[in-house]
Design a protein around this nucleic acid. Structure first.
Lengths: 203, 203
DNA sequence: ATCTTAAAATGAACATTGTTCAGTACTTTT
DNA sequence: AAAAGTACTGAACAATGTTCATTTTAAGAT
């Protein structure tokens, strides 16, 4: 009598169906622009049904927040083969920029969107996000150990690097670089990144 | 026959009335949370009336965008009395942080909020914003001239500094520092800022 | 096979939102 | 006092997130 088990499976399937649909819509329209009714229509159920599987709209997007960070960490994975820690740090920065503009909607929920949607401290997203930050911190630790970064408190230095990366990427994503001419903007981020790396480098 | 003039005055007064009300509500609730009906109720007019003076909700907040930057520039003014350009740069950074947390709603429309609301390139906000950026760039120029900053393309270096400041402030404003313990977070921004300044300093 | 009970899905409704427009009320001009 | 013009508004529209009584569907018991 595996009926209960089957029902549980069905329930999981339904959650996944909703999530996949929400995910797809989210990637093309963004969070605020996707309505419960959009999702409902896409999966051919009534809007009310969705509330049988998720508490509210935010809860649906906790999942996406997690997805985004998983994708991010996956994206970063390749750099960990690089032996030299400073080179790894630089590669990570480059990947960060790449990710931002490859998945702007992801970047948005990860780092920019207002956070009532991610109160749950123990959510997938926060855990994966923590992993990413730890990765950065461990690279920074290595760099300091090898004398490629000046000796500083690791957490603070890592945060400083993160702040710079995020500031640059989010200014561009949120269209705050209109002060620059097309010509100036062209390659601005890459040039700035090079300067920042030079600033970081010990000697 | 100053009737036309009086009507023009009335019109300006009405716009100001709406703007003041919107402004007040905005500072306590933020952009998305203020509705046209809120504003209408506050000034004791019908919602429809507001559309006789402003094209849409965004247009109302163009004005606030301008106000925010004016306030910002006013806030920065005090640092321009400082002779030494590098000290001035540091003071500007400190003021930037101060401003961010004194007026988070302003900071939000200035640098974080999505920008359909500020398409008009020629708006007050963009002009004032440009002024602020120019101020930073001229300080950077001076610092380079005096050898306190390493010689680099001014626009790019200024952007790098701005990116860092913005990244740090917006991560905090958007609650992305939950990875840190209370203890770690305490003073993190100030510590990071000191590190960044050290990185910037030539030698 | 029929009846009962439990679960799943929904239509309709509520309170919001920005925005529009036909009509009313008031003011100025003739 | 009548006509013209301007300022204002109530009601409506199409959305939104969310809830709930009701209906449909499935399962278990007789």
């Amino acid at each position: 009598m595996g009926v209960k088990e089957r029902k549980e499976r069905d329930r999981v399937d339904m959650k996944e169906l909703i999530l996949n649909s929400a995910h797809q819509l989210f990637l093309s329209k963004g969070f605020e622009e996707v309505s419960i009714r959009n999702i409902a229509e896409a999966i051919e159920y009534s809007p009310a049904t969705i509330y049988l599987y998720f508490k509210d709209k935010n809860e649906i997007f906790y999942a996406l927040h997690g997805e985004a960070f998983k994708k991010f960490n996956l994206y970063m994975e390749s750099v960990f083969t690089i032996k030299d820690p400073f080179k790894r740090l630089v590669a990570m920065g480059e990947k960060y920029i790449e990710f931002t503009f490859a998945y702007p909607k992801y970047y948005n929920i990860m780092f920019i969107a207002e956070a009532p949607m991610l109160c749950e401290e123990s959510s997938e997203g926060w855990i994966e996000g923590g992993r990413a930050l730890e990765a950065l911190e461990s690279i920074v630790t290595e760099c300091i150990k090898e004398g490629q970064l000046k000796k500083q408190p690791v957490k603070v230095l890592a945060f400083t690097i993160w702040s710079y990366m995020h500031g640059m990427c989010s200014l561009e994503l949120r269209d705050r670089m209109k002060h620059y001419t097309e010509e100036e903007r062209e390659g601005m981020i890459e040039k700035s990144f090079k300067i920042f790396i030079q600033l970081l480098k010990n000697q």
